[in-house]
Computed example of a mutant assay.
Amino acid sequence: MSIAPKDTDWVSLARKSLKGECLTVEEGIAVLDADNDEVLPLLHAAYLVRRHFYGNKVKLNMIINAKSGLCPEDCGYCSQSIRSSASIPKYSLLDKETLLAGAQEAMARQAGTYCIVASGKGPTNHELEQVIDAVKEIRATLPLKICACLGILKEGQAERLAEAGVHRYNHNLNTSRDNYPSITTTHTYDQRVETVEKARTSGMSPCSGVIIGMGESHQDIVGMAFALRELDADSIPVNFLNAIPGTPMEGVSRTTSMRALKVLALFRLICPSKEIRVAGGREISLRSLQPLALYAANSIFVGDYLTTAGQDITNDHQMIEDLGFEIELNALQGGADRYELDGK
């Protein structure tokens, strides 16, 4: 059994992280095993690392569910999967005008990155063309970074997205290699790793993260953080399972707020310089403790997720302001204060 170090030892882990040294498996498990009364000292240590790389800036990202449902994959957590009976909207890829309107909404919400997400194993060539067409127009008219999340990419598709102006490609590992067969059987863990690597070699920034709460052990969670450190993912969304009725994981207990905070601290300490994003399920798992998450994470999604609602944007902006933190504009947006839907 791991013995969790006291607060002075959490700071020593932060110093180790800042020197570029990786935590050991035992140290990582100790973070997750920490008593709840150690969470504030643990978050202080994580904040020392976060502040070093990001100060008090918070990056905002917004998702558009560009294609919903109709997915042949059997991912047990997903309401869009063929295994799901959840009542969700189902539609093919949105037209360019709708994707452009979503980009304008992202600007109005002060998001620096607009994430175009489509269900399915991977894009057809026709779907890829539709996304590329929209991306080119967005890049020509708005100072937004674009992230695409379209599934497993075929040869040449990553290069085409990069050429069109997609800055980042997201493909989550979701869980550990050992736990992977228990959540998905229609594709492999290695296929996900290969897609992240294709994104990097094409020139896009690799984004890959996890879903916490799917039966994984502490060692699995530490292994996920190590795997993403090894993949050198620039952005790491940390999702917490939202056990949607109608999915195979319906009824799975929520990740508690204190456990969620420990997980975020762990990812900050193991991947110190990376964008750690509190992603799907933050409102359900963190509840009233959402502001504390930003002492470890430096990024959130604003608006709704794929098939579930997010927190009201006013509350997100207020949360950041009340912490004394500041929304980070990306380099494309420069010094602009705020973009309104009417362009003023």
Rank of each mutant, 00 (worst) to 15 (best):
A225N: 02
P248F: 00
G251M: 07
P181Q: 09
H171F: 03
C207N: 11
R168Q: 07
E250R: 09
S253G: 08
Y189C: 01
S208Q: 12
V166W: 00
S217H: 05
N179I: 01
S182K: 14
E250V: 13
L161T: 13
H171D: 03
C207R: 03
F226T: 11
S235T: 15
V193I: 15
V238Y: 04
R160C: 08
R259A: 10
R177C: 04
R200K: 13
D232L: 00
V196Q: 06
V166S: 08
M224N: 13
G165A: 09
P245I: 13
E163P: 07
K198F: 07
T247K: 00
S217A: 07
N170H: 14
G223M: 07
N172P: 05
H218G: 02
G203K: 05
S182I: 10
N179W: 10
I211P: 01
G203C: 09
T201L: 13
P248C: 14
E216R: 06
T195I: 08
S257L: 06
A158V: 00
T247N: 02
V252M: 13
G209V: 06
A162K: 04
T184W: 00
P181V: 14
Q219V: 12
Q157W: 02
S235Y: 05
T247D: 06
S253F: 03
E159M: 05
L261A: 03
M224V: 13
L261R: 00
Y169V: 10
G203H: 05
I212Q: 07
L161F: 12
E159C: 00
D220M: 10
V238L: 08
T255F: 07
M249H: 07
I211S: 05
H171K: 12
H187T: 04
T185F: 12
P245N: 15
S257F: 05
N170S: 08
S202F: 04
Y169S: 04
D234I: 01
C207G: 06
Q219G: 07
K154N: 13
P237M: 03
G251W: 06
L261P: 02
A227R: 08
A233I: 14
V196N: 09
G223F: 03
R254S: 15
D232R: 11
H167W: 04
R229G: 00
H218C: 08
R177E: 15
M204S: 10
I212F: 05
A162W: 06
A158F: 02
P245H: 15
G246E: 00
I183S: 12
M204V: 12
S205N: 06
A243I: 06
A243L: 01
T185P: 09
D234K: 03
V238S: 03
D220L: 03
A199W: 01
M258Y: 14
T184Q: 13
N172G: 12
I221V: 14
G213F: 09
E194T: 11
L228V: 13
D232G: 02
G215Y: 07
G246S: 12
S205F: 03
L228Y: 05
R160G: 11
T188W: 10
R192C: 13
L261I: 15
A243R: 07
T185V: 00
S257P: 13
V166Y: 02
C207F: 09
A225M: 02
A225D: 05
V252C: 11
